[in-house]
């Protein structure tokens, strides 16, 4: 059965398809070539027992392991816990224009983390480790904001991050 499609409609459909295709191509390009991906990391952890060395994913998020440290391969890693109502450690300092890998876990409920003027934005879901690598391009002090409702004091949950020039950065406490 044939259907009646106006020539104008045909042109419109072609134009729309071209726009959709172009968008796909752009996104695939940035994903494949520039490695731009959302923060996906299917890695489980026992959120209720972050303070223990044993258990699923245990040890990494114990209190004395939190903060900025250098990986075996030289990458700067920030290990952080999100818990009602703060990010721990509450103050971190990292250099500008340097890839920083964040590893974060929740101690209780859902949280999110947002650092304004950066692409540091991820959900922190209990039971899972969130990991993402980002580059800060602005100097200064920025709040580390919880961007998912986590309870009545959610708006008071935050930390601070200081982005400093590369030369001024040194690891204050070496964490092993």
């Amino acid at each position: 059965m044939s259907i009646h499609i106006d020539p104008l409609e045909k042109k419109w459909i072609i134009m729309t398809s071209v726009i959709v295709l172009l968008t796909w191509v752009l996104i695939i390009y940035y994903a494949a070539v520039e490695n731009v991906h959302p923060p996906s990391n299917v890695e489980v952890i026992d959120s209720a027992h972050l303070h223990l060395a044993s258990g699923v994913g245990g040890g990494e998020f114990m209190e004395d392991k939190l903060g900025v440290h250098r990986d075996a391969d030289g990458t700067l890693v920030v290990t952080m816990v999100a818990a009602r109502y703060g990010f721990y450690p509450q103050h971190v300092e990292v250099p500008i224009n340097t890839p920083i890998k964040f590893r974060m876990a929740s101690f209780d409920v859902l949280h999110g983390v947002l650092i304004p003027f950066s692409n540091m934005n991820t959900m922190i879901v209990p039971g899972y480790v969130s990991e993402l690598t980002t580059n800060f391009t602005r100097l200064g002090d920025f709040p580390v904001i919880c961007d998912e409702y986590c309870g009545l004091a959610h708006a008071y949950m935050y930390g601070m991050i200081k982005i400093v020039p590369k030369d001024d950065f040194k690891l204050t406490a070496e964490v092993h």
């Binding site: 419109w12 729309t16 996906s40 990391n41 299917v42 991820t122 879901v125 899972y128």
Partner: peptide
Amino acid sequence: MDPMVAAGWKLLHMFGTFMVAVPTMI
């Protein structure tokens, strides 16, 4: 922005998401 879904699935859903633009444009 969630950790527990692998990136490939997100990419797949992105393709479908842009398809919804078509009926809206129509």
